[in-house]
Structures are given as structure tokens and as C-alpha cells.
Amino acid sequence: MKKCRHCSRRATLHVTEINDNVAVPIHLCDDCAHGYLNGSNAPEDEVPTQAAELAAKLEALVADEDEECSNCNISFSQFRDQGRLGCAACYDEFRQDLMPLLENIHEDSTHAGKRPRRNPGQSASESQLVHLRSEQRKAIDREDYESAATLRDEIARLEAELHNFPISTAEDSND
């Protein structure tokens, strides 16, 4: 499949321009072809943005059913629309659908760079924190302040464990 020279979507218009006696093949998608044919061709040095390329790749992703991340509640279709995940746990929750995308983008799927010096194996408490925050939000929404306060203390305890900062409560952070 030929890709559009401007946005990497599937090209549908194929023309050959003659510039200084040199034949230059040009492939364009529907949208860009429209601009080209109406004379508002994109400048030569305009390149597809990574966002546009990602959007095209995301468009091609079709999840069987619209799963939701149990930690942050973002749905896979929401991710597909905005191109941004909701939390670190989404990488696990959507792993099956994400792996082909990652391989498409990076042509690889295993990290080969630096690692945190400190023990990074805290993902369980990380996920729990995101989950507790989401629960706390829900408790506040239904005006269950007792549960919200318990959750707040639990969040502060986990946070202090995870990061180096002293235990603080919501009251402190509003100072």
C-alpha cells in the first residue's frame, strides 16, 4: 500500500509531476489530494506530524469490545480518540491491543535503555494508588466523606512509601 506523502494515510491519488525534466511520483490520500487538485498543495518542506501518523495508526486499531482500564476507567476507544493513555496501568490493561501498535511505531517492543537506580518493582502499589484515587473521587461525588477520608489516609501512606516525601494529608496540600 502506498502511503500519502503528507500524512501517511493510505494514498488514493497517484500522479507523476515533471520537475526540470525529472519525473516525480506523488501519492496522496483523499484529503490531501483534494488540496492538491485545488491548488492549495502543502509546501514541499511540510512533513507529516508524528501526531498525524499516530492518528492514522490508531484508526487502524479495532478492539473487539470497548474495554475499560480498571484503574483509571479510561476506555480503549477514548484512548484511540485522544492518543493518550490514562495511567501507567493502561499499558497492562490494554497490553494485547497495544503491543501491535508499539511494534508498528517502534519496530520493537522491549526497552533497552536506562533503568531507575531505585527499585522500580513497585507497580502493584502504583496501580493501587491510582485505583484508590479514583475510588476517593467517587466517594466525594456521592458525598461519602467518611470513606473519602479513610481513602485519603491510605493514599498518603502509600505515597510516602512510594516516593520519599513525608506523609501529608489533603489539608496540608491545600496550604
Binding site: 499499558y91 522491549t110 531507575p116 522500580p120 502504583e126
Partner: peptide, 15 residues
């Protein structure tokens, strides 16, 4: 990183 923990996955690296 001495001060805070970053989201990191053994296989995928920094998230």
C-alpha cells in the same frame, strides 16, 4: 529519581 519514583515497566521501560 532520588526524590520521586517514576512509572517504569520492566519490559516497556519508562511509561
Amino acid at each position: 529519581e532520588e526524590q520521586v519514583s517514576f512509572s517504569f515497566d520492566e519490559k516497556l521501560g519508562y511509561l
